[in-house]
């Protein structure tokens, strides 16, 4: 793998000789204790207005994303040329090297065939650990500025069926980022880039093979069939229970898992959990307060209308709704999926 990194460096060197100087990512800015005020200063985008990533950045998608008020999300990962790729690991999030950045841009259709970018979140792996910084795009769409205290925005989102909905979009502040990303042991880690979330088919093959070729991940097990995969919950060819569990993993499992921020509840919705009581089935709530909706159990098989889990997904009241952050609207498709899952559990 070292060779791959070298070849990347070599390619960069060749590019320097061969043609116009390609802009480089500002590794020093990434390592600084305080991030720059403007996103452009980091050099992650070659062209801010066109949102063209730097040549060293590698786009990726995950199979089952978190619902964020219907925002479209564009992800890429940057690993500096000097660093080693992340070792393959079947469980948990990839251990990307120091100097890496995960870049996620949230956008909505602008109504004119283009995109209106709202924010770009950076997760930067520094020597002292991972840091999260939100940048909010200016209306001019050619720059995004750091907002450590977050920001509230009134936006209009487009649902998959083409209808629109008003969104009270909340750019999380730095601490709110930690609300989901910090584990019980205090360590701040990314959430999405797990092998099982990246193991998906895309144009031209498996995404993991592309990430290996790009020097992001070290080599994969020879038997690709043995690599774990979380299915896409949107894929209706997948079994209902697997879709539902993928949805709960993506939308709840980052907090509701052992050692994660919501483990105080004993409700664990991560993909790996196999104990029924901890998955919520006939589990009484612990500290739900009015989030219980007057119901006695998280999931009552066959009875979604008396299941706390569905009640909280189907709410936008901040004292009731789950997840606590990241949405102001109801994911109607998600609610329908979980309703069908709970109904089917009763049969």
């Amino acid at each position: 793998m070292l060779m791959l990194r070298r070849s990347k460096a070599l390619a960069a060197a060749l590019a320097l000789i061969a043609g116009p100087v390609a802009a480089e990512v500002n590794d020093a800015a990434l390592a600084a204790p305080r991030p720059p005020a403007n996103l452009s200063e980091i050099g992650l985008f070659d062209d801010m207005a066109a949102m063209t990533p730097n040549a060293a950045a590698v786009p990726y998608t995950i199979s089952s994303p978190l619902f964020t008020d219907y925002a479209l999300k564009f992800r890429f990962v940057y690993v500096p040329a000097y660093a080693e790729p992340a070792a393959y690991q079947g469980e948990d999030v990839l251990d990307l090297p120091v100097g890496s950045v995960l870049v996620k841009t949230f956008a909505y259709p602008d109504g004119a065939g283009g995109l209106h970018r709202v924010e770009t979140r950076l997760l930067i792996h520094q020597e002292a650990g991972w840091k999260a910084w939100p940048y909010v795009w200016k209306d001019t769409q050619d720059e995004a500025v750091l907002k450590v205290a977050g920001k509230d925005l009134a936006l209009t989102a487009t649902r998959p069926d083409g209808s629109t909905v008003d969104v009270a979009y909340h750019v999380p502040n730095v601490n709110q980022c930690k609300g989901c990303h910090v584990r019980t042991d205090g360590e701040f880690r990314p959430i999405g880039p797990k092998i099982r979330n990246l193991n998906l088919t895309e144009d031209g093959g498996n995404q993991l093979d592309r990430l290996v070729a790009a020097g992001i991940i070290a080599e994969l097990p020879a038997d690709h069939g043995a690599i774990p995969a979380t299915p896409a919950y949107s894929d209706e060819t997948v079994a209902l229970e697997d879709r539902a569990r993928a949805y709960l993993d993506a939308n709840c499992g980052h907090c509701h898992a052992p050692g994660r921020p919501a483990d105080t509840s004993g409700l664990y919705l991560n993909w790996e959990e196999d104990r029924e009581i901890h998955r919520g089935i006939m589990k009484p709530p612990v500290a739900a307060g009015r989030g219980s909706g007057g119901f006695a159990y998280d999931i009552v098989p066959g009875d979604p209308d008396h299941s706390i889990l569905l009640y909280r997904l189907d709410s936008t009241d901040p004292g009731i709704m789950m997840p606590e952050l990241g949405r102001s609207t109801i994911d109607e498709a998600g609610v329908a999926l979980i309703r069908a899952y709970i109904e089917a559990l009763g049969s």
Binding site: D152, G179, G289, G291, P318, L325, S328
Partner: peptide, 28 residues
């Protein structure tokens, strides 16, 4: 309140809170 499951969330040690009030939060 329109966002957030509690009024004030503290996730770091050694905090000292004194002489103020938190009223009418939607959650805790």
């Amino acid at each position: 309140q329109s966002g957030g499951a509690e009024g004030l969330l503290i996730t770091a040690g050694g905090a000292i809170l004194k002489d103020f009030a938190v009223e009418d939060t939607r959650g805790d």
